[in-house]
């Protein structure tokens, strides 16, 4: 049983078929005058039919609802890439092997970006962290690290490029491109929120790994400047799985005073003061 929804019906007779067809026509606004009258009559005498029509109509409307700055919904049925199944099995096999190795975090090609960038810090590898098996993601992270390194190289006059581009910049809080660990406190029991900050010329990037917040609930990530001004860095939904997200805010690291995670009511669920720069 694959669980694909809706592999039954397509009835071809009786009143049920007429009723179902009428509903389908109404849901596409495909009724002539006679069928429209028939539909309205049925709605007026059958509350359950009307309720179902309204529920399905609301759902259908979501497909055509304009979403600013996002393209219209479209669907294609792509062919599944050859070899994907084997690559998945290989990734799981490699993940299992590396996670059972003594220094899994150092060896695993699947470790998270933040774990990768944390290499050399004292944080203990956590087997509950999500994987990042993506070669593409790895390329992007290496690309970002490369760009950040080249920024530093430019300031240094280009010396030692080969050595420097292999790793992201390091340095005290506020160093452009360097990853800064943040310890968040006051998290709800059973929850874990790990955070890192990266200073950029255009603002501050926040990288979060979150476990244990209520699934489906909306949370805001807020950066508070030293002058008290609050900037929304982004939002996320709590989930049963570990969440990894990266957010940006237009506040320079040197102006940043505090990082907060808030629930939809604005209550702080995790927070930390940051080191003054």
């Amino acid at each position: 049983m694959t669980g694909t929804y809706g592999q039954d019906e397509d009835r071809n007779h009786d009143d049920d078929f007429d009723r179902d067809e009428l509903m389908g026509a109404a849901l596409a606004h495909d009724l002539d005058a006679g069928r429209q009258k028939e539909f309205e009559d049925l709605c007026s005498r059958d509350g359950a039919f009307l309720d179902e029509y309204q529920a399905l109509s609301r759902l259908a409307t979501r497909f055509s609802t304009p979403r600013p700055a996002t393209p219209a919904l479209q669907w294609d049925d792509p062919d599944i890439p050859a070899g994907l199944e084997d690559r998945i099995v290989d990734a799981i096999d490699q993940d299992t092997r590396t996670r059972s190795a003594p220094d899994a975090d150092a060896l695993s090609p699947l470790r998270s970006s933040s774990s990768r960038r944390r290499a050399g810090t004292s944080r203990t590898p956590d087997s509950s962290r999500p994987s990042k098996p993506s070669a593409r993601r790895g390329r992007l992270i290496r690309g970002a690290a490369l760009a950040a390194s080249l920024l530093a190289v430019g300031a240094l006059g280009g010396a030692g490029i080969t050595h420097l581009v292999d790793r992201p910049p390091a340095g005290p809080p506020g160093t452009l491109g360097a990853v800064e660990d943040i310890v968040l406190t006051d998290t709800p029991q059973g929850a874990r929120v790990d955070a890192e900050l990266v200073a950029h010329t255009w603002g501050t990037e926040t990288i979060l790994e979150i476990d244990g917040l209520l699934p489906g609930r909306v949370y805001d990530v807020v950066l508070v400047r030293e002058d008290g001004k609050e900037l929304l860095s982004g939002t996320f939904l709590g989930a049963e799985q570990t969440i990894t997200c990266r957010m940006n805010a237009a506040v320079l690291r040197e102006d940043l005073a505090r990082l907060q995670v808030r629930d939809a009511q604005g209550a702080i669920v995790a927070a930390s003061d940051v080191t003054p720069v």
């Binding site: 929804y5 809706g6 019906e9 389908g24």
Partner: peptide, 12 residues
């Protein structure tokens, strides 16, 4: 038309 009805039901 009937597929539309049952499809949207399944989607819900």
């Amino acid at each position: 038309r009937t597929r539309m009805y049952y499809g949207l039901k399944a989607l819900r």
